[in-house]
Write a protein that binds this DNA or RNA. Structure first.
Lengths: 206, 206
DNA sequence: GCTTGTGAAAACGTTCACAGCC
DNA sequence: GGCTGTGAACGTTTTCACAAGC
């Protein structure tokens, strides 16, 4: 659902506004800040309930709390990273510095040589221990950043370990009947850019 | 247009199949390989013309050529990277090793200390020279991987330099009337994952 | 017989317009 | 008066069903 992908965007703005605990924000103001339309924001929020006050707007603190509840981010959520190559490492670092609600707790890499290597406060673990360690830590969210040929196997191992949602950066589209997989293919995105350059389409998304 | 975002996916599979220059592939086979439905693939391809042969399928070599033409990738395309932090560097490396149709030709970073630093065969340039150098190299595609507060300014400089399409990884949604901007917000994607974990939605996208 | 190409239907997402409420 | 919440209109994307062609 497209709506859900926008909630974190709102949350980000609200948390900034919520530093003044009394601040009230209108859908128009959120629209300005996020680059979306105000009616879209109202529709998105109304889908989950009536959080606003007519004539006034939304309480920043209140709405932020609602969104955190909806997203399941009321307390920090642990994430497992598989693949400590350049991309995985960059994502790990990105998250460690930019986001406190989500936290990588385990990192795995297929390269035995690198097991034990410290990386942004964590230590690389061996994939052979993955299923056990992920299960023991009760991690439900995973990021896959491994080469194409390893991706399918890694996904199955993660599902076996109890993971319930996966963000996949490997260049193969992963699908699994039991868990939600979101695929992001960076090369594909860039190649598609080339089309839009030639066709002067303006605007964009996400 | 959703169709365009899938063309690179087809291209990838076709190029693998096209190693046998006589190979012919059906939409069902492409569907299996890409995780999409066969009718979707036929619709996508039919949107740009009738490339198949009824009863047989599509010539891998022929269709690959058509898609390259449609995407504007018949010859290598130069790309400029702005922001040589962890994320930008990872993307640079990723592209250098995984994709020969697109090639980063210039890299910029705001940190003066890093100007001249070698990076995957390129040398980091100063942002102060960006507009001039990008224009001289006639680059039309750009990737932005800079912190939020710098993103808007960088986008405008790139547009001034003649860039026509942009892939933006900074956490602010960029919009510009004159060029196509595709925004990818990694933190947002991961936060949304948390929702899908809690709601047992299966499947995924892109 | 097998597979493409396509109109029609359905699902999904966004925008519009305004009634309802503070 | 101002802003939310929502039904209706619109547009896009996907799925269905099948006729057309090798």
């Amino acid at each position: 659902m497209a709506t859900v992908l926008r909630l974190p965007l709102y949350l980000r703005e609200l948390d900034e506004l919520a530093q003044d605990r009394t601040s009230v924000v209108s859908s128009a103001e959120l629209a300005r800040r996020t680059g979306l339309s105000s009616e879209q924001i109202r529709k998105d929020l109304a889908y989950f309930g009536a959080f606003g006050i007519r004539g006034l707007g939304y309480s920043a603190v209140g709405l932020s709390g609602q969104l955190r509840r909806i997203l399941g981010l009321t307390e920090p959520v642990g994430v497992v990273l598989v693949g400590a190559g350049k991309l995985g490492t960059a994502f790990l670092h990105h998250l460690a510095t930019q986001e406190e609600r989500l936290r990588f707790e385990l990192v795995f890499d297929a390269d035995e040589q690198r097991v034990g290597e410290p990386i942004d406060g964590l230590s690389i673990m061996a994939v052979s221990d993955m299923t056990r360690l992920v299960r023991e830590a009760s991690l439900k969210l995973a990021v896959i950043a491994v080469p194409a040929q390893a991706a399918t196997g890694v996904l199955q191992q993660l599902v076996d370990a109890g993971v319930e949602a996966v963000l996949n950066f490997s260049p193969v589209k992963l699908v699994h009947p039991d868990v939600y997989v979101r695929n992001i293919n960076l090369v594909t995105e860039l190649e598609a850019l080339s089309y839009f350059r030639n066709h002067a389409v303006t605007g964009g998304s996400a």
